[in-house]
Amino acid sequence: MHRIELVCPAGSLPALKTAVDHGADCVYLGFKDATNARNFSGLNFDPAQVREGIAYAHARGRKVLLALNTYPQASNWPSWTAAIDRAAEYGVDAVILADPGLMAYAAQNHPQLRLHLSVQGSATSYEAINFYRERFGIQRAVLPRVLSMAQVEQVIANTPVEIEVFGFGGLCVMVEGRCALSAYATGESPNCNGACSPGKHVRWEDTPRGMETRLNGILIDRFADGERAGYPTLCKGRFDVNDETYYALEEPTSLNTLELLPELARIGIRAIKIEGRQRSPAYVAQVTRVWRAALDRLQAAPDAFQVTPAWMAELNKVSEGQSHTLGAYYRPWK
């Protein structure tokens, strides 16, 4: 059995140090611009912070991965290639890319730079993953959150590329990299702008009907007194379909695959990714601590692995909507 790497989110330098201190094998981060899929104000790293973060992680034997996983366009192409150049100069351990053009640039100009295929690349089959391997020599692919366990196993059996899957955190119900819902509602998309349902389009309105959340004027949800009003991520709102009001696409919930760890290890997963660069260092600490403990337990005694109620309680505290799901790993979810 391979040792499974724990890949944790760092939206800031304090979060990076917290992740490293609590047992992350790798941290992933982004620059302060649209070159990554968590382009939120107050988040991400300037050059000095990247250097300090890398030094901190490397001094403790951990890796730093840089997400450059949005799609550059003709007009802004030089900003993305400059970001690749900086990543190589700073000595990150890998870049996480989605755009084939950018991969070609990295492979040509920085052949020593390790390439990971981002979840935003939407590669859901081994044929797609092997395309990126043959063309650019990618060494790892992050799978979209759409495949069942058997399908993930089939992918692993048919590619030499290391496979990383999401273990915990905010859940995209749509195939990542193939979702234009935010672009449709706001003009800004994860693919091109690095943000879904961006904050500048959000309005919270206390009305006689209840607290209303809007995205670019579109009503995403309405909350009764005593209901906790959530952020209006547009696929997690309540809508009317044939006169029935419900979470038509997905509830506000988090993915949590802790109980699947032995199975994920058996089929040969190489890394588990924790979502949440937009979350606080406190979230990073809590989630990293639990997953580190679980992975260590699994490594020590694979056959005796059991999820403890304490772990689940800790994770539920920081889950969106205080609930969790196995997502596509659980057939009825589909």
């Binding site: 959150r145 759409v146 495949l147 119900v173 749509m174 195939v175 193939r178 979702c179 234009a180 819902l181 672009a183 449709y184 696929c235 379909v241 044939n242 029935e244 038509a248 696409l249 997905e250 596509a328 057939r331 009825p332 979810w333 589909k334």
Partner: peptide, 20 residues
């Protein structure tokens, strides 16, 4: 406009059915 794809079937979900 085709805007997104998912592993989940939203039509089945509307009728309280599973995709399978």
């Amino acid at each position: 406009l085709p805007l997104a794809h998912s592993a989940r079937c939203f039509t089945a979900r509307h009728f309280n059915l599973q995709k399978d």
